[in-house]
Amino acid sequence: MDEQLKDRLEIRDLIENWAVWRDAGDWDRFATVWHDDGVMMATWFQGPALDFIRVTQEGWAKGVSILHFLGGTSIDLKGDRAIVQTKMTISQRGDVQGVLCDVVCTGRFYDFLEKRDGRWGMVLRQPIYEKDRVDPVDPAARLELDREALAAFPAGYRHLAYIQTQIGYKVKLDMPQLVGAEVEKLYVRGRDWLAGKPL
């Protein structure tokens, strides 16, 4: 098999395994998608992958329900490095002011991958948050949001930030969105990564 095709298949496998193993709670296998220095960025957590696994497990124990669904993937490959963009949705279910709701956020995972000792692994996962919405699980339920509090959050993940704040998380307010300075800086970091520069 052509080496570049093999790399692309291994990368796609890694991206899909991230979502399946994380959402299934298959923590031992989930840890294998990362390199030892891997970093996870999310609205509610930013830090080392091993800490992300630990706090995710703690969240599960408290009833936090966050799931992921993947769409198409674009792989920019240069030697032993790759930038991988994957269309995704983040779905979080939880209580919003006494009403059980689903928040769905659509965006992309923007991943910095590297092949080390023959194995591809994730060095940095940075989501890009494009748009979101909130819906009561019971369509007959009446949901009233605090409009002022909602407006304080970035448009691309406004409802996601709202529900996460409601359950006690501190949300990062300058995450990349569909357009803007933060996503442009991320694209520059991606080009630098493919050019061999350090993160």
Rank of each mutant, 00 (worst) to 15 (best):
K185G: 04
Y157C: 06
V84P: 14
Y129H: 07
M40Y: 04
D37E: 13
D13M: 08
W193P: 02
L160C: 01
Y129N: 01
C105G: 04
F52E: 02
A151G: 10
I75W: 10
Y129F: 12
E182K: 11
V33D: 07
L9V: 12
R12K: 13
L100N: 14
L186P: 07
S91A: 12
V99G: 08
T165E: 01
R116Y: 05
R142G: 10
E130P: 13
A141P: 03
D80P: 09
F45A: 05
V103G: 06
A31Q: 13
I11V: 11
D132A: 07
M40L: 11
P136V: 06
G118H: 10
M88Q: 14
G196R: 01
V171F: 01
H68C: 03
Y129R: 03
F30E: 04
D192V: 04
V39W: 10
P154G: 01
L9T: 11
G94K: 04
Y169W: 08
A181F: 14
L77S: 08
D13R: 11
D7L: 05
A42E: 13
D2E: 14
Q92P: 03
G47V: 00
E148K: 14
G59I: 05
V179G: 01
W27E: 07
G168A: 02
T73S: 12
C105Q: 15
L160S: 11
V103Y: 04
A152W: 10
M41Y: 08
W60G: 02
L70A: 07
L70P: 14
T32I: 06
E184D: 13
V183C: 09
W60F: 09
G121P: 02
A161S: 15
V84D: 01
Q85R: 14
L77Y: 13
A141Q: 01
N17A: 15
A161L: 00
M40I: 12
K131C: 15
E184Q: 09
R158T: 10
